[in-house]
Design a protein around this nucleic acid. Structure first.
Lengths: 119, 119
DNA sequence: CTGAGACATCGACGGCTGTCTATCTGTGAC
DNA sequence: GTCACAGATAGACAGCCGTCGATGTCTCAG
């Protein structure tokens, strides 16, 4: 239900700056985090994320994204859906066009968890 | 050949603190990074990484890791191999036992790339 | 040399995933 | 209303992935 609203609820084990090295992950935590990484673990989706995240205004229209790949429109739509359902992209339909925006907070949490640089 | 030696060669586009939002990833960069995320995008491998990384001395024996899961020994061995070949784990055979050690540098690079927290 | 134990490799199998084409839905122009 | 266009959905199909049991390899003890 409210599952995708909670982007990363890591309890107390991984407080603020504790990456993987900060303590053994529980099975539950691992199964909560893995889907996020899985969503990101594809070259096309990685590029989509970076395209959206680095776009002017922080958002990008599907019509622009589709042209950046040698893939069919449904395939791009599929990848965007995966990223959206993982909670990494926000969707915003305006008229005929759909705009996607990166959830930078989710990305930051993930990045910190994987390996926050020294300190 | 020397492929797994270079953990993350991200050229100049993603200098030090530039995550996905720091500029569009090239197709080549994306295909270089995705395998690392793919290796990490599994609950068992996530837990393995965290177990190894948070072990005393920074390393863990396979014999200890196997007992932490309800999985067969070959399956654990397989996951460790995946992490090793991705360049996320170092292997060190000492006598009859094999010890794995986390490549914290690789983890840090990945974490920074995905989403370095503000600044 | 022989046996036991720690890991790795092999081959198989079911399920998931990325891609496509075809089609559906919704929005704005006329 | 009707047409064109943006995007999503559906169904199909090939290839990859996680898991297993069986077996192989290496190392040490005796």
């Amino acid at each position: 239900m409210s599952k995708s609203l909670v982007v990363l609820d890591l309890g107390s084990t991984t407080a603020c700056c504790a990456p993987l090295s900060g303590g053994a992950l529980s099975a539950g935590q691992a199964e909560q985090i893995a889907p996020l990484l899985k969503a990101l673990a594809d070259p096309v989706r990685l590029r989509l994320m970076s395209l959206v995240a680095s776009s002017a205004g922080g958002e990008a229209c599907v019509c622009d994204l589709t042209g950046a790949f040698d893939l069919s429109q449904p395939t791009i739509s599929h990848h965007l859906k995966v990223l959206h359902e993982a909670g990494l992209l926000e969707r915003d339909k305006r008229g005929v066009w759909v705009y996607y925006r990166a959830r930078t907070q989710a990305l930051a949490s993930l990045g910190t968890l994987i390996g926050s640089p020294e300190r």
